[in-house]
């Protein structure tokens, strides 16, 4: 009875929460359940397809194209994960040593900028500068005596490195700013103590700054891990038929199967496998880096 009273007293609060809960149920929870059901069915355009157990999952796992996109996803995302983790730390450490605050601010402003742009914009810029006819990169290469243009975006050997490089170009500045914010909040007395001990610049980086950045590193790593299997826009924009085999990832596979070929059962099964892998990866990472301890 008492419970009912408190609920009633706060009914306007529940009313304010109602649209949010309805939204999440219709656009997150219901699709999750629905997706799982579809993945167990033989999909038919009209009416309900019969349940076929885990047949779709088996078919996905036996599909050579799925094996290929698995390799691609882990190669590309793995590259983005590693380079995208290390490089911003280097930039942040380097920026922290800059004394002129105008130069420092300007650098921050410039490197963070591409993070604001969509993958269509960034992809458009990269396609343009990598173009074989008059693209910026090929023009610069002619200064070094390269006569023939390189067709960067249709070469299989360049495909994955270009995906990784463009992702770093877009997002390194963003991650770097996270580290800089953490560096600013390091207690200055730690540096004073290091100075007293006669530590040089590199020693201070190694023994003071880096250990103090560990909590931020954990957050960055976890956020990146949660995102790696879902990359889609970037690949959709930068991929083409010549390199698709090297760069197509889980989500482009799902999109192609489900939306373009209307094999919704297969696509949903693939999507669920990805969801499971993401949860597993997140869980393992949390345990490995002891995310929940000492934060």
């Amino acid at each position: 009875m008492n419970l009912w009273k408190t609920v009633k007293r706060h009914y306007s609060l529940y009313l304010m929460l109602l649209p949010i809960l309805v939204y999440f149920i219709i656009f997150t929870y219901y699709p999750l359940v629905r997706g799982f059901i579809i993945s167990l069915q033989e999909f038919q355009m009209i009416g309900r397809g019969p349940f076929i157990g885990f047949q779709n999952y088996l078919e996905v796992l036996r599909d050579p194209q799925f094996i290929q996109v698995t390799i691609n996803t882990f190669m590309i995302s793995g590259g983005i994960l590693i380079v995208g983790f290390v490089f911003p730390i280097i930039i942040a450490l380097s920026l922290n040593e800059v004394m002129q605050s105008v130069f420092k601010r300007f650098t921050q402003t410039v490197i963070y900028l591409p993070h604001l742009f969509s993958w269509v914009i960034v992809g458009g810029i990269w396609i343009f500068i990598l173009s074989p006819d008059g693209g910026l990169i090929n023009e610069i290469l002619t200064w070094f005596g390269k006569e023939e243009s390189i067709h960067f975006l249709v070469r299989e050997d360049y495909a994955r490195p270009i995906m990784i490089a463009s992702a770093i170009w877009k997002d390194a500045g963003y991650t770097c700013i996270l580290y800089l914010a953490a560096i600013v909040s390091i207690n200055p007395s730690l540096y004073e103590a290091a100075d007293m001990d006669g530590a040089g610049i590199l020693q201070k980086m190694r023994y003071v700054t880096l250990p103090q950045l560990v909590p931020t590193m954990k957050i960055v790593l976890l956020l990146n891990i949660m995102g790696i299997l879902r990359i889609f826009d970037q690949v959709y924009v930068l991929s083409n038929s010549a390199i698709a085999n090297e760069v197509d990832v889980f989500m482009t596979y799902t999109y192609e199967k489900g939306i373009l070929q209307f094999q919704m059962g297969i696509a949903s099964a693939a999507a669920f496998l990805v969801l499971l892998m993401t949860l597993l990866l997140t869980f393992v990472t949390r345990k490995l880096i002891r995310y929940d301890e000492g934060m």
Binding site: F24, P31, L32, I259, A271, L275
Partner: peptide
């Protein structure tokens, strides 16, 4: 917790059922 669970589900992973909805 209901809200936090939704943060674990990437929209891309439910694109097919979302399309149907």
């Amino acid at each position: 917790s209901m809200i936090m669970i939704t943060m674990m589900v990437p929209a891309e992973a439910i694109m097919i059922p979302l399309y149907i909805v």
